[in-house]
Design a protein around this nucleic acid. Structure first.
Length: 384
DNA sequence: CGGTAACCTGGGAT
DNA sequence: AATCCCAGGTTAC
């Protein structure tokens, strides 16, 4: 999964000509005012040697693992910007805030603010990002009533939550994802991220605020190609250009899609170069409150033909069939179908599959062994 | 309009 | 070692 060496985000060929914006150094605009006293020791801990005010460290969120499992939420494909910085700990940015989340012994989640312009704003942004207004437990109860397989999976994989990301950030990440693999997507996203204001370093990873459209527009297609983006380079620059041309700004335009119906939002997103049905659904579900958007990729296609539309097994994935799959999910799971799909998708990931009792993905033997073994989830809730 | 090849790249399989 | 194939797709014939 983490095939990355923190220091080198991407190979950086020599600048062919003095570029207006070198990916390596993006410190023109002043980041957070650095501490006036610079310690000579490079590895000084962030001990408050000059700040008398004791800064509370880890703050409990009152969110338990049935509502939020970090390992099932952060490294499972919704975002490529959060890094694992501890056993049950992930670190990333939300807007201008840099923070870590981790599970306590009892499964509860707590957070630690590494940097923020405003502590209160950071907490609000965190709660919004985590979509805490939506009760995962209640949703899953309903899904489970209508789908016994979901019910079984839900017992083992608690807390797989859908995040509420910033639309621009989400869009650019999934532009990178097309016909690509996780490792390279992560490297590309790291490269883009490095264009934003540096917010701090945790566990050997550097964290940056996601670059604004204005900063993104300073990067040329050629620079992106040299950074290894391939044909996706023109998707990025093209989409940024279109967004920049919106009357009220691209960020605002994207946010306005939160108020539209799903199909309208999808259609609007698909006008952007590099955004097709799959990427549009990802953006809609992960950042635009479109809870019944279904990102149909090769994985979901496999799942759907196995459990939902067996009559389509063997067919190729075409745009037409994409919507068939999406419809099937929505008619089975309802207005939060995207949240149901998220769990099914995660259950199908190799990393999770290996941990699940084998009968889940052995569809063949349905009657052979009726193991109604509710407690067969050995990995259940081991948050200590 | 629905079905098929290119498209960048790098890692793993053959 | 040289190719082929594929990976959370989109676009262009």
């Amino acid at each position: 999964m983490h095939s990355l060496k923190p220091p080198l985000a991407m190979k950086r060929p020599r600048p062919p000509s003095p570029p207006p914006l070198s990916p390596a150094s993006t410190k023109q605009t002043s980041p957070p005012p650095p501490p006036p006293l610079k310690s000579l020791h490079p590895n000084t801990p962030p001990i408050s040697s000059k700040k008398p005010k004791s800064h509370p460290k880890w703050v409990p969120l009152n969110l338990f693992q049935t509502e939020l499992s970090l390992p099932l939420t952060f490294p499972t494909g919704q975002t490529f910007r959060w890094k694992q910085t501890g056993p049950l700990q992930y670190t990333g940015t939300i807007g201008p805030h840099l923070l870590s989340l981790k599970h306590l012994q009892n499964g509860d989640v707590s957070y630690f603010i590494h940097f923020t312009p405003s502590e209160s704003a950071a907490k609000l942004a965190l709660l919004d990002f985590l979509n805490v207004g939506i009760s995962l437990v209640k949703l899953w109860e309903v899904f489970s009533e209508n789908d016994s397989r979901f019910a079984e999976l839900a017992k083992c994989l608690k807390g797989a939550r859908v995040l509420r990301q910033d639309p621009v950030e989400c869009l650019v990440q999934f532009l990178c994802s097309s016909n690509n693999n996780i490792g390279r997507i992560t490297k590309m996203v790291d490269f883009i991220s490095s264009l934003g204001t540096h917010l701090g370093s945790v566990g050997g990873f550097d964290f940056h605020e996601f670059p604004s459209l204005e900063r993104l527009s300073a990067v040329s297609e050629e620079e992106l190609r040299q950074a290894g983006f391939g044909y996706r380079a023109k998707y990025i620059t093209g989409t940024v250009d279109v967004l920049q041309s919106k009357p009220d700004g691209g960020a605002q335009w994207l946010l306005s899609l939160r108020k539209l119906d799903l199909q309208e939002a999808i259609d609007a997103l698909c006008t952007l170069p590099g955004v097709g049905p799959k990427v549009a659904a990802c953006i809609a579900l992960f950042s635009l409150d479109q809870h019944h958007a279904i990102p149909v990729d090769t994985h979901v296609w496999q799942i759907a033909t196995k459990y939902l539309l067996p009559e389509l097994a063997g067919a190729r994935l075409t745009p037409k069939l994409c919507s068939r799959v999406a419809e099937a999910f929505v008619s089975k799971y309802g207005e939060y179908a995207g949240w149901a799909q998220t769990l099914l998708f995660i259950a199908d990931l190799p990393s999770q599959k290996a941990l699940l009792p084998s009968h889940f993905w052995d569809i063949k033997e349905k009657n052979s062994a009726k193991i109604e073994d509710s407690n067969s989830c050995n990995i259940d809730g081991n948050y200590s």
